[in-house]
Design a protein around this nucleic acid. Sequence first.
RNA 1: GCGCCUGUAGCUCAGGGGAUAGAGCAACGGUUUCCUAAACCGUAGGUCACAGGUUCGAAUCCUGUCAGGCGUACCA
Length: 657
Amino acid sequence: MNILAELQSRFAAALAGLADDPREMAALVRPSQDPKFGDYQANFAMPLGKRLGRPPRDLAAEVVARLQFDDLCEAPEVAGPGFINLRLKTDSLVAALQQALADERLGVTPASNPRTYVVDYSAPNVAKPMHVGHIRSTVIGDALARTLRFLGHRVIGDNHIGDWGTQFGMIIFGYKHFLDRAAYEARPVEELSRLYRLVNRLVDYHEGRAALPERREQLTRAEADLAKLSSAAAPTDKAAAKNAAKALRRAEGNVNDLRAGLAQLEARLAEVDAEAALATLAEAHPHIGRDVLSETARLHQGDPENLQLWREFLPPCLADIERVYDRLGVAFDVTYGESFYHDRLGTVVDDLLERGIACESEGAICVFNEGHDAPMVIRKQDGAYLYGTSDLATIQYRVQEWSPDVLLYVVDHRQGLHFQQLFATARRWGYERLELQHVSFGTVLGEDGRPFKTRSGDTVGLWGLLDEAVARAYRIVSDNDDAKPGGAEISDERRRQIAEAVGIGALKYADLAVNRTSDYTFSYDRMLAMNGNTATYMQYAYARVLSIFAKGDVDVAALRAAGAAIHLDHPAERALALGLLQFSEALADSVAEYRPNLLTAYLFELANRYSSFFEQCPVLKAPDEATRTSRLLLCDLTARTIRQGLQLLGIRVVDRM
RNA sequence: GCGCCUGUAGCUCAGGGGAUAGAGCAACGGUUUCCUAAACCGUAGGUCACAGGUUCGAAUCCUGUCAGGCGUACCA
């Protein structure tokens, strides 16, 4: 049961007739921040008193008198300016715990109005190596899908992979010109990935070369502007002086940016020039950018050779991605990539044109949406479609196939504008009743703003990152086991399994525990941390519970079935119990704004309470049998809540650490 | 220029109308004859970027300023 919801509904009943919006006032019942104010508190008396012109404390007293909840709470206390502090009766806590104990779902009631969600997440580009940047969408989307499903909603997890884009033009071009046949036959994905990187570098090189004169000119102009501004006489007028200073600062910033950008570009070009083999290739393919585009275009037009190559490349690439998902424990209901929608794009554009939503502009087909300076282009001048077109076709398909209530796009916040345009267009297209949500998250930044680089300058590959996390976990597991007073207990094979769960859990947790809207700075230590507020802390609490069961040779299932009594005499027991009962509140909060970090925060708090309890309340050596049984039941419920909670985050538990 | 996001302890970040602003890491001190010390308990550390406003009440909402990031029609 959801205690908060129950309290709110009781308050709403008591407020009927007093306030014209009893539910809104009742929503001001919250968990207390500080235990000395009780377990929950009601904060409506101040605003309502103001509105009704009555002293808040009188009003609070009147509402308290009308409340019907002797079964739930101790006598409420009116405090301060009119807060109503509520302390749950121990009996009602116990009753709720007994109920949760006997329930597979730990007392979490399924949604009364289940909805259908399509969750669009992960979406890597096939044939480009996966790197750290892909992990956030995957992990956050997976956690949301799991949580929504647990709450009783219908969820379709869809991995909208990029399997039809320009990268295939690059790979096809690379295959036709630079293929190492033996390497391809031995390890196709590695070779394709090498070709992708090679062609990408060559394209980048020529684009860079072409852009160089203009970039230099820009810099010269900016420097001239700066010189002019700095030599100008300072204005005497105060406001004008301020503006002049501002312009000067901006010009300086501009020059610095351009200088840095140019230096970076020149460095990249110099790198290629320095590698003789690469420079030769670059020279041999001066129009590689154009050629790559034309390979892509030929693929899209159904050229048999390119299509055949695409069909050949795709399976090993998909298998490679699948390997990462297997290791992460992430699964999708469907994987319909961009290619799946390819033959629908023409119809989409025609339909939008026919309805007058799209129109021709400068040779392209565009949708102009209110509030946006630029249109959303859905067909280029050259006739090619864009990913917005594909996204529109995807919405159409999803609605036809699943009639969803909500579409969630778990995508980097940099695509915010794209989704605004997409959603605006979709609404005009007739999907105004569909809830469209961009569940955006911040970018993973490098320590200097240049993301994902190792010391040697390579991108941090996802697989390597997983290996690193697991290796660190293995060291910690081993050290800890070796240091046990009675000597090591865990076999090496088991240590490796534990390290896998702990390392990958830590990695996922780093992404889930922060508010998704903020960017974060990439750091191995932070991402792979296993001390403090981490998944490891909860896994450890879980393992300690199981250790008690093992040591005491306790048959938990039998204990549970026997329906023994729970006693909450010690403050640590009570605090733990209340925490256990707030699981459903945490889930509701987490899903309301699509924020898994609310669930991690809850679990951390819960594990914290358990650790306190563990220190203060001996279980196996409890003073008497009744206390021992009661504490064992608390342990059982804690273990199950942590396991269930972590599972909803896609994180595994282990029985020993 | 316009739009979105961010600014909270030394560092990384929670909290996004409610009472005295929190955690982890780092620092300092304590706890192991006792179910796992990956733990627990404590100390120290803050002008919640700045200025106005709304409110009984503002870190939280509004306006402005400053600083940073991102995006801004034919890339995804």
